[in-house]
């Protein structure tokens, strides 16, 4: 039984289903990410939890209480909007203090809690500034402080980091997790960035076209993607179509050894393997021969595309100080059979 649960929640806009039959149970203190491409219904789902969008069907429960029909100002959830939605005519301190004022917290205590919260987000010396005088990262922290100061049972974050540049974004991911751990607030974060979802969540919920297609811990999600879409949306994935024969995947003349699977011989299958699970070796060695088609240097590793009999295959080579094979050079590819997963066509259709 979750702390926050969605039971068969759906939303239809003008006959078009935007969120379909969503079921989710979030435990107390958990950090859950809603991951999906733009337009898949993440914001709509979050706003239904917040009470800003009325669900077309289903129930939302908070700590056992049905809040489906409750007004947003009665739910008491903390929300950080994608645009931050700070009050432009109020100072940082006034912004943070607003929710406490609405709760009739006495002046002295209000000031104390605002100061504490601003300290937590490292903005103590910005209290008297207006939002327009702050940088993107600072605004975001004000928005978080404003949402957290009311000690909400649940914190909802809508792409809170998408407006930041890469460096700041990484810092803020860390910061966000630090604050969440400190305060222990149950958090749901919407994002379209798979790396962000993997790095800071306890569990990731993947949404595709309004449906939740996988709910798993980051490691499992990465290692065992439930749908073809997830396999390529979360990380990179080689997908090789072939036929199941004698415990291997056969693609033309190439034979790809895989983990054992209970599949009828002759079935059309797809072999799945991540680029970093493949090893580059000398020509003639390994399980598959090929020729380097392209090579990209990405700092920590190189990403090579190797043309083989089984098609073009991405291989990630860690940057150990030795330069890997150049374009046009023949190479071999090797892997541990257990890391090559097999998906049947019927699974794909599911």
């Amino acid at each position: 039984m979750g702390f926050l649960t969605l039971e068969g929640v759906s939303k239809v806009y003008g006959g078009v289903p935007v969120v379909r039959d969503v079921n989710l149970a979030v435990a107390k203190g958990e950090f859950v990410s809603l991951l999906g491409p733009s337009g898949c219904g993440k914001t709509t789902t979050l706003q239904m939890i917040a009470g800003l969008v009325e669900p077309s069907g289903g129930r939302i429960r908070l700590d056992g209480r049905d809040i489906t029909q409750e007004k947003p100002n009665r739910r008491g959830l903390g929300i950080v909007f994608q645009s931050y939605a700070l009050f432009p005519h109020m100072t940082v301190a006034e912004n943070v203090s607003f929710g406490l004022e609405m709760r009739n917290v006495p002046r002295a205590e209000r000031d104390k809690r605002v100061a504490e919260m601003l300290g937590l987000v490292h903005l103590a010396d910005m209290a008297d500034r207006y939002p327009r005088q702050l940088s993107g990262g600072q605004r975001q922290r004000v928005a978080i402080a404003r949402a957290l100061v009311i000690t909400p049972p649940v914190l909802l974050l809508d792409e809170p980091l998408s407006n930041l540049d890469a460096k700041l974004r990484e810092e803020m991911q860390f910061e966000l997790r630090r604050i969440q751990r400190r305060v222990g607030t149950t958090t749901i974060m919407v994002t379209h960035d798979q790396a962000e979802a993997l790095s800071i969540s306890d569990r990731v919920v993947v949404m595709e076209g309004g449906r939740m297609t996988q709910i798993d811990a980051p490691y499992r999600l990465y290692e065992q993607p439930a749908t073809p879409f997830i396999s390529t949306f979360v990380g990179k994935m080689n997908r090789i179509a072939g036929v199941w024969r004698d415990g291997t995947v056969t693609v033309g003349n190439a034979i790809l050894e895989s983990a054992p699977a209970d599949i009828a011989p002759g079935t059309a299958v797809t072999a799945l393997i991540r680029p970093e699970k493949l090893r580059l070796c000398r020509p003639g060695e390994g399980r598959l021969a090929g020729q380097v088609a392209s090579r990209f240097f990405l700092g920590g590793h190189w990403l090579l595309t190797v043309a083989t009999e089984a098609g073009e295959i991405m291989v990630s080579v860690p940057n150990t100080g030795e330069e890997p094979a150049r374009e046009g050079e023949p190479v071999g590819i090797d892997w541990t059979p257990a890391t090559l997963r097999v998906e049947t066509a019927s699974e794909v259709a599911a």
């Binding site: 800003l52 947003p72 739910r75 959830l77 700070l86 009050f87 432009p88």
Partner: peptide
């Protein structure tokens, strides 16, 4: 005016009028 600013006020406990 960002319409979400008004929504932010609601979620912080403000009534529509406030």
């Amino acid at each position: 005016l960002d319409p979400m600013v008004e929504a932010a006020a609601w979620t912080l406990g403000a009534s529509r009028f406030t």
